[in-house]
Simulated scan of single mutants.
Amino acid sequence: MLRAAQARADAAGEIDWVVSVDSTVVRAHQHAVGARKGGSASPHSDAPGAA
Rank of each mutant, 00 (worst) to 15 (best):
H29N: 12
R27D: 02
E14R: 12
G13L: 11
S45L: 05
A32L: 05
A32W: 01
A51L: 07
R3K: 09
V25C: 01
A11R: 15
T24G: 09
R3Y: 06
A5Y: 02
A50Q: 01
V33P: 01
S42H: 11
V21W: 08
V25R: 11
G34F: 00
T24P: 00
L2I: 12
A32I: 00
S45K: 07
H44C: 01
A35W: 04
A51K: 14
Q6Y: 06
A41L: 12
A11I: 02
D10G: 06
A11Y: 04
A11Q: 15
A4E: 15
V33G: 05
A7M: 12
Q30P: 08
P43W: 00
W17H: 15
V18R: 10
V26N: 10
Q6N: 12
P48Y: 03
V33R: 09
K37H: 08
S23V: 11
H31G: 10
D22V: 11
I15A: 02
D16K: 12
S40W: 03
S20K: 10
V18E: 07
A32P: 00
G38E: 01
A41G: 08
A12L: 08
G49H: 03
M1F: 11
S42K: 13
S20I: 09
D10R: 09
R27S: 05
S40D: 14
A32Q: 08
V25K: 11
A32R: 02
S20L: 13
G39A: 13
A4L: 10
H31K: 14
G13D: 09
A41W: 02
A9G: 04
I15T: 14
S42W: 05
V19K: 12
A7D: 15
L2H: 05
H29K: 13
S20H: 05
G34M: 00
D16A: 14
G13R: 07
A41M: 11
A35Y: 08
A32E: 14
S20P: 02
V33D: 05
A9I: 00
V21E: 13
S45D: 06
V18D: 10
A51R: 13
V19L: 15
H44S: 04
R27T: 07
H29S: 12
M1V: 10
T24N: 12
A50P: 00
G34D: 06
W17D: 15
A32G: 15
P43H: 07
A5K: 10
R3A: 11
G49T: 06
V21C: 06
H44D: 09
D10W: 00
A4Y: 13
G49N: 04
S42C: 01
Q30D: 14
A12D: 10
P43V: 04
A5D: 04
A5R: 07
S23G: 15
V26R: 10
A47L: 06
A41F: 01
D16P: 00
R8D: 08
D16T: 11
A7I: 04
V33I: 13
W17Y: 14
A5E: 07
D16W: 00
H44M: 03
A7Y: 03
A12E: 09
D46G: 05
K37I: 11
